[in-house]
């Protein structure tokens, strides 16, 4: 596998980075980087760590980094996670207020501990902590429950002062969305599977309305809706497809849709194959929308969708 850290890769301009990823030769990983400056979304680091943690360190080659911002990768714990030396020396600072280094979550207990420790690390006010821990819990639990990966969820986050935004990336190298969804549905492509996974009330565990005792197909829909209502970026990449929720301009009318393809979005198929799932999300801390108000919007569309789906199964009277 080959992955190149570009000059810039955030959700808004992530497409070329995803296209350039070379997933051939999965037993080795080669990391190259822009020579001058590297500025990347946490999801990029989560992806590289997820690819590398299953490999022997001698099968990971990282070229000597020259970019002035190379220390960031060391500080985020990328090389520690890969168990290789970068040769970069840094003075470790207390991470509070800035970032959550790359972390691996493999159990429910680790996730609970991670969420508890995360909020003080980012110095968040309660109103900002609420959606953040909600999103991280739901995303990481998806990995633990559905990805079927011993390597678990690889997650990191960074606060960006200039945009007053927290950016989160979470990656796994599990079975991917299509395999999970197709336990109950028949998605022909990875993009079909992503679309289903983002639709309210669709879960790979059952086709029954109301779901199972554990799943109802709400997690990813809630997260997409939080991003949509806050006009934040959100993206998901699994198999050879990705879906990106695009930002809407302030002042445009808020609309949540059951079908993710009705939201302002971009999507692409035939990308290099990602065995597993990657999710990235930006959470603007400037938003005035209270989490509690968002839940009203989300509830309305979720319940309406369930009701309409149920109605479609009604038996019709036969008139002669």
């Amino acid at each position: 596998m080959k992955i190149h850290l570009p000059n810039s890769a955030f959700i808004g301009n992530i497409d070329p980075f995803l296209r350039s990823f070379d997933s051939r030769e999965p037993d080795r990983l080669e990391i190259t980087a822009n020579k001058k400056w590297i500025s990347v979304h946490p999801l990029v680091l989560s992806m590289i760590a997820a690819l590398g943690i299953g490999l022997q360190p001698q099968n990971i080659y990282c070229e000597r980094l020259e970019a002035r911002s190379k220390h960031y990768l060391e500080r985020m714990g990328l090389f520690r996670m890969l168990r290789i030396s970068s040769g970069i020396r840094i003075t470790e600072h207390e991470p509070a207020g800035r970032f959550i280094p790359i972390s691996k979550i493999t159990t429910s207990e680790e996730l609970t501990r991670f969420i508890t420790e995360m909020v003080p690390l980012l110095h968040l006010e309660p109103k900002h902590a609420e959606p953040l821990r909600y999103i991280i819990s739901e995303l990481a639990r998806n990995v633990l429950e559905h990805a079927d990966s011993e390597k678990g969820a690889i997650i990191c986050a960074q606060y960006y002062k200039k945009s007053n935004t927290i950016r989160i990336g979470i990656a796994d190298t599990g079975v991917g969305i299509r395999k999970t969804i197709n336990n109950a549905y028949d998605a022909k492509t990875d993009l079909d599977a992503i679309r289903l996974a983002l639709t309210p009330g669709i879960t790979g565990t059952t086709r029954m309305g109301g779901g199972t005792e554990f799943n109802v197909g709400a997690g990813l829909f809630f997260i997409r809706s939080i991003a949509e209502a806050n006009r934040d970026f959100f993206m998901i990449y699994s198999g050879d497809a990705f879906y990106k929720l695009l930002k809407k301009r302030q002042g445009t009318r808020q609309h949540l849709f059951a079908d993710p393809l009705r939201n302002k979005h971009s999507s692409e198929e035939h990308l290099p194959h990602w065995q597993g799932t990657v999710v990235g999300i930006d959470i603007s801390l400037d938003t005035n929308e209270e989490f509690s108000n968002l839940l009203d919007l989300i509830k309305d569309i979720f319940v309406k969708t369930i009701r309409e789906r149920k109605k479609k199964t009604f038996r019709r009277p036969r008139f002669a």
């Binding site: 509690s292 839940l295 319940v303």
Partner: peptide, 19 residues
């Protein structure tokens, strides 16, 4: 609190809608 109430209401509502 208000948030938890809304989440409980969501679950009770969709469970009854789908029942």
């Amino acid at each position: 609190n208000g948030t938890v109430q809304k989440i409980i209401s969501t679950v009770t509502e969709y469970m009854q809608e789908s029942g």
